[in-house]
Write a protein that binds this DNA or RNA. Structure first.
Lengths: 189, 189
DNA sequence: CGGCCATGCGTACGATCGTACACATCGGTG
DNA sequence: CACCGATGTGTACGATCGTACGCATGGCCG
């Protein structure tokens, strides 16, 4: 039998399994028992490595948020001008995120928790702050807020629409939201 | 004692209670027992009036979606031009929706269910379709999609941000997303 | 006026949950 | 080599859940 000594991978495996179960069954369906089975560890390990369910969920969602934010940092860090940044945003939405039903589901689950429990709200805020910082390399703060909101909204629609989103629509939407509005000159009246 | 004969209000009261409990405790915390207590009906009434939990949730969220969509119809129906419609959208976001933590929480809960179960996805789609139809009175279809997405995103941010959203930011964001993008003329190079 | 049946309810059952905790295991230490 | 404490696990308990179902109730029909 494998050594009974401390196994540093054990914690990680449980966290990964937690995200898998949440993606498949939702937070509501994520029990210690199911996660333990998915991770291939005994039930007793759950309370040994994590004081309670909230601690496990907290760590899991923090890891999830960071993994998404890493992609923001990477894509946007490579952009060299505003147009490149716009393109990076479009790619982030289309390539990395919309294709992955898993990420969408996890995002929804996190938001739902965040709307109710302060701990998860903080995780979400940290995540959003990271995203905005990445966007802030190329856009002014107010635009970052709008752009961030638009990205969130496009997420949601992608999760629920039957028909796939057209990339052209995303391109146009990103272009619009990053372009300051100039009130048109009034014609005489 | 009150009559044992059929009470048509009973169903409605249960549905209203269900939304109250979901708003307060989330779908995860909404049990037959809690809803029954909130509605002031015995536990046995729950399975009498609703075949199972999903049927109750379905009816509750359908009612919720319709109540929000009604406000969209009303506000946008009163607008007479595009600027009026833009203002209506801003008002919808700020007056009716952002102030109400309850609506935000319910929206998140519905989306989370919708991401997983087809029944609730259909409810969400119907709701979105109603909203888009209302927006369609004043904007072209592509703009409706973008605007709808932006509204969703602003919702989410409102639920999670500590600081309140500035109305001016919303006004600017709505103006931008409803203004077609014109590629700027290139300077010589 | 007496019985019947639609309406509505109290209760109990089996499943599942989070968590606690006694106990097994075994590398390191003296 | 003996034992001790760190590491990890099996199991059981109390709470809560959705749901089923037998039974109480009382208007209505004959």
């Amino acid at each position: 039998m494998a050594s009974r000594r401390f196994d540093p991978d054990r914690r990680d495996r449980i966290i990964a399994a937690a995200l898998d179960v949440i993606a498949a069954q939702g937070v509501a369906g994520a029990s210690h028992r199911k996660i333990a089975e998915q991770a291939g560890v005994p039930l007793g390990s759950m309370t040994y490595h994590f004081a309670n369910m909230d601690e496990l969920l907290t760590e899991a969602f923090r890891r999830f948020g960071n993994s998404i934010a890493d992609r923001f940092d990477q894509e946007l860090g490579e952009a060299t001008d505003v147009d490149g940044a716009r393109l990076a945003v479009v790619d982030l939405i289309h390539l990395d995120l919309l294709d992955s039903q898993r990420d969408l589901v996890l995002t929804h689950e996190l938001y739902t928790l965040a709307a109710r429990k302060p701990v998860f709200r903080q995780i979400t805020r940290d995540w959003m702050a990271r995203n905005r910082r990445a966007l802030g390399l190329h856009f002014d703060p107010e635009t970052c807020r709008m752009l961030d909101a638009l990205i969130e909204g496009l997420f949601i629609h992608a999760a629920l629409d039957t028909e796939p989103h057209h990339r052209a629509t995303t391109v146009e939407a990103v272009a619009r939201i990053t372009t300051p509005y100039h009130r048109p000159a009034r014609t005489a009246h």
